[in-house]
Design a protein around this nucleic acid. Sequence first.
DNA 1: CGGGAGACGTA
DNA 2: GTACGTCTCCCGC
Length: 914
Amino acid sequence: MPTADQSPLILVDGSSYLFRAYHVPYLQALSTADGQPTGAITGVLNMIRSLKKDYPNGNVVVVFDAKGKTFRNDMYAEYKANRPPMPDDLRSQIAPIHDIIAAMGLPLLVVEGVEADDVIGTLSHQATALGIETVISTGDKDMAQLVNPHVRLINTMTNVEMDEAAVIEKFGVRPDQIIDYLALVGDKVDNIPGVDKCGPKTAVKWLAKYPSLQEVMAHANEVKGKVGENLRSALAHLPLSYELATIKLDVELEQSVTELKPATADTETLRALYKKYELRRLLADLDKNSDSDEQDADAQDTAGQQNSPEVVAEYDIIRDQASFNTWLEKLNAAKLFAFDTETTSLDYMQAKLVGLSFCVEVGKAAYVPLAHDYADAPEQLDLDWVLAALKPLLESDSVLKVGQNLKYDANVLSHYGIAMQGIAFDTMLESYCLNSVATRHNMDALAEKYLGYKTVHFEDIAGKGAKQLTFNQIDIEKAGHYAAEDADITLRLHQAIYPQLAKIPSQLSVYNDIEIPLLPVLARMEQNGVLIDCDMLAQQSQTIATRLSELEIEAHNIAGKSFNLSSPKQLQVILFEELEIPVIKKTPKGAPSTAEEVLQELALDYPLPKVILENRGLSKLKSTYTDKLPLLVQPKTNRVHTSYHQAVTATGRLSSTDPNLQNIPIRSEEGRKIRLAFIAPPEHKIVAIDYSQIELRIMAHLSDDPGLVKAFSEGKDVHKATAAEIFAVPLDEVTSDQRRSAKAVNFGLIYGMSAFGLAKQLHVPRHTAQAYMDKYFERYPNVAKYMDDTRQQASDDGYVETLFGRRLYLPDIKAKNAMRKKAAERAAINAPMQGTAADIIKKAMLDVDAWIQQQNDDRIKMTMQVHDELIFEIHQDIVEETTAAIVEIMNNTVTMSVPLIAEAGVGDNWEQAH
DNA sequence: CGGGAGACGTA
DNA sequence: GTACGTCTCCCGC
């Protein structure tokens, strides 16, 4: 039985047929006895009927233009200005058509502000992304721009089908050149200006010589004769014509393509409507077929419940060349397939490939075991042979892949000489962009949330703990089911999540324009790794160890007994019970706190806290950094390779683990020394470039506060400027203490602070902190307004957004618990700033990486990202010009109402580079 | 052996 | 006051 996913999508351009049917002479004559014209109704309905006959499996969706102006009128007031208003006898037929289509149970879309073309473009674009075949039924030649291997046109009135080859035959240009063609030729009816005297022949001639409108325009001077002059004088308006001729692919729709499913026909309403409009043939059909029609509708409805976990799965385990070749052909023919690797380790640097799984069509997946090596493991296909056969496919840009965390698979495959391309979709990132906090984004959680399906867990087949097997030790049958299911589930998840994402253009663009392109960039950075001076760290560990034992003896002496300095619980007893030191603060669970700030304060009056503080700081440094980092050096590369996690944080930041390179010490003197061990290879320099005050600049931009914008635009020291405002003193009389307070206020604002929090931070009374804040909001009123608006938006919509439309949902914003609600409000204030900063540096990474790729010079490597900072290794011979170029790219990544400033440091190690 | 608590490293 | 990851201790399985 064919699954729902195979049924083609039939998009009907209702408006195009409406006009054409209206002008057909024999239809014009039709009307009801009381004079209501019905020719257009009949024409459109006949056409839908014939489509349903030609595509019995088809999922028919009908789209009409909405009344009123569209965005094209905003772009160009003259758009369609020559069109006469719609005749009344046509207008009166629209509502009946809509009613009848609705009663038939067909999805009907009428979207204001755009044309039917744009809705169709968007739906066909979504369908292509999901691997769904699409047929667009239209009489409009402009739609030829939408044709691709999976989208074709059918003119139902002439019965002419048009695929890519047919477009080339009819127009003489490829589908992707149709917009260029239309812009050059222009359109009298729609009032789109082209090039005078340039008709189809000339446009084709030009586009054969130069591949795009842009190129034609670039070479306008080479075109001779009168038409050449016309081309040159059209240069100014051609971009507009191009825009007007471009069908939108990202219209915001209430329902995504997979949600548009037929409902059961409302036979009674349909009968009444057919009677009313005297559509005798349709009425006769309805009575004749009423039973079977309803059955059809039911059958379609059931099939429409996609992603049902009940669908019988066919999982192949491929161990012979013939079956493999059959699958290879399937993959080659597919526009999109899901893909997963099975390996021996979660660590992409250590992982050895054990098998591969694929899925082209939901419910049908294959596992290719390659390196199962338990006793009695059956013979498997040769790993090198399989990889060689798959290499062209995996490296093809035009065969699209979907996976779950493909960065991992790409990293593993890179060690087998395969540079994956065509990474088009990643379900982990889809879920993350849709809602970063609704769920974790691992496959098990996604399958449960989006498919209601419990997957086989790795632990179910491998066991857990020290006895856990690695994948190569697992029985091929068990492993095959698990692995094939992973590929199958991945495709199902994609079909479930992507359409939801596609409904919101800004979220789709965060996915398509930031996260997906960032994936290979992060993979490259991870592969690059960073160079560590292990000897230096070992020496530091030695020094710290000596000091730690001194401190331990000292602490035991003061306490009068031996205890574990790193046990907060034992320390509590010593400090607050035995030494009877007063309790300053309690932990959330109610125990007396021994946190740093408490010990700092106690250190003024007692000797032990000071010793503990130094001990804690040093033991953290030793265990987390000086001892640990050398253990993480990969023998293969002699470098440390972190993992950047792209789907972890609520706000859009990256995170880093194994090791976390984003919390290497910098604040304390001893801590900073660890950065001395982050070194450059011979003849290279470490270059660190960070965005100065990026979050405050974003606050200035988002709030559009004149005072704050001015301070940044004039390149002032913004904390000093803030101090001058708060304390009402001239700029050059601001004391360092005032500047420090102002800085705390600025940071506090980014964190959604209260006067209480500020008071604690600054060690001033609450009313003093309140006075600072009042004064601040008085001097920067738009900041106050922005904060209020943000809180309001969070409360109204349940989410806040970054400048680029990345959303953070805040379910707690409606919490009954006041603490949680307040916390959600602070997160709401912080997220747009932290998140926009994350978006910006991600975009900068894309730009910088693209530039580095273009240089094609392996003396330039991007190695780390630390939220507002990028770190590079650059050869000493080119360090100056390369650094300048990267700074320039980072400064111009986005344009805001305040300048974005990147500052570079160069050195032999990370410490020097600061 | 797993996981919570408490502490502390970063932006 | 925001956002993270990792360490140790220590309880309970």
